[in-house]
Design a protein around this nucleic acid. Sequence first.
DNA 1: CTATTTGTAACTTTAACTGTTACAATAGCT
DNA 2: AGCTATTGTAACAGTTAAAGTTACAAATAG
Lengths: 152, 152
Amino acid sequence: MKISTRFSDSIHILAFIDIYQGIIPLTSNNIASSIETSPVVVRRLMSTLNKAGLINTTHGTADPELAKATKDISLYDVFLAIEGDAPLFAIDERTNPQCIVGGNIQETLNEYYHQAETAAKAKLAATSLQDIIDTIRVKQARKEALQRKKQS
Amino acid sequence: MKISTRFSDSIHILAFIDIYQGIIPLTSNNIASSIETSPVVVRRLMSTLNKAGLINTTHGTADPELAKATKDISLYDVFLAIEGDAPLFAIDERTNPQCIVGGNIQETLNEYYHQAETAAKAKLAATSLQDIIDTIRVKQARKEALQRKKQS
DNA sequence: CTATTTGTAACTTTAACTGTTACAATAGCT
DNA sequence: AGCTATTGTAACAGTTAAAGTTACAAATAG
């Protein structure tokens, strides 16, 4: 059950690259301090995103770039890159094949779980990195407006 | 971390109760041998299902009963009983609030993840224990038919 | 050619789930 | 009443996957 924070952290990295490119150097160190994790963890994830064709990195130099436009990268693309075909619901692979239930429940649950997973993945596929960035910017603008109010 | 099969095992228990009631004694031991786990694990799950009002158990005696008709128990009812509001996608709770991305990504992902989770949960809600049992029985009948063929 | 950075391997730590042991509490039977 | 089987739970041990750490080779840029 439960998808690891790698998925969330990967979206974080992609949004960070888009928002901070040209503003600060996009080193694994700088990205790591935004996620509050270690640079190695960031490099691991970026390496995976690179191999999946979502970003372009260069060995030895900072400043990775998004390989596609933000509107053309969906959350499902990121999910696939990081988690592959990992299921959202875990099937117990060790049930008694002699039993009517134990012998058929795995295949059965697999069918229904697959339907639920597909529904969730469709939503992820319908959400782009641009949507995420837009939402982040709206929330940030709201925060800043509120803070200006307090100060006056 | 380690993925949980409690949800699947709980559906297994419910299906087992319905299919084997009156045929074999529904002890935690018998159920455990179908799931290939220990009786204590089964009792733990059954205790939770009991408290959630999905089954009725009696301390000291075997043969728990489903508290509702199989068509009136949905997979989402079971999920809620076992997992509560546990999210399917983990948000990294520790990101840098000073950063535009780190300070807004949690809320942002929460919104989009919630959409995906709701879509998945809707599918679970649309699937009843009766659907699961029907599918198990069809698969079992198919297996038995195939075996008869081999023998002749 | 030096400083910086990525990429990766190997290892440790941490968190959560699964399994085990133990035992009190309850029910049903004789 | 006493015996047996069973549930319900607590406490603990074992297992597994993720996250973090250390170390270092390989690549780039000045």
